[in-house]
Amino acid sequence: MLLIPCPWCGPRDETEFSCGGEGHIPRPADPAALTDPEWADYLFMRKNPKGVHTERWVHSQGCRRWFNVARHTVSHEILAVYKMGEPPPETGADSKQNRT
């Protein structure tokens, strides 16, 4: 049971949140201009790193706000939470690094 620090409400149990998958995938400005493979890439392709993953969560049982989380997928350490629209902060570890 992760303890996730909502940027507004503070630390709450994982069960209060929903995970929205990988973050920082903006919707293409003009989908019609994309080839089918490009559109499929936006729609379906996601990273699955062993390491730091930036992902979107929503505090669905609390303030209902979406935010970003940088989480290590092995240790589950949460290295940062930051608001929507903000760039991922330096977490001292990129996703290639294996911090097991």
Partner: peptide, 13 residues
């Protein structure tokens, strides 16, 4: 509701 909020909060700020 969650779907609409997601778009409003993550894409169409």
């Amino acid at each position: 509701l969650a779907w609409l909020e997601m778009w409003l909060q993550t894409e169409w700020l």
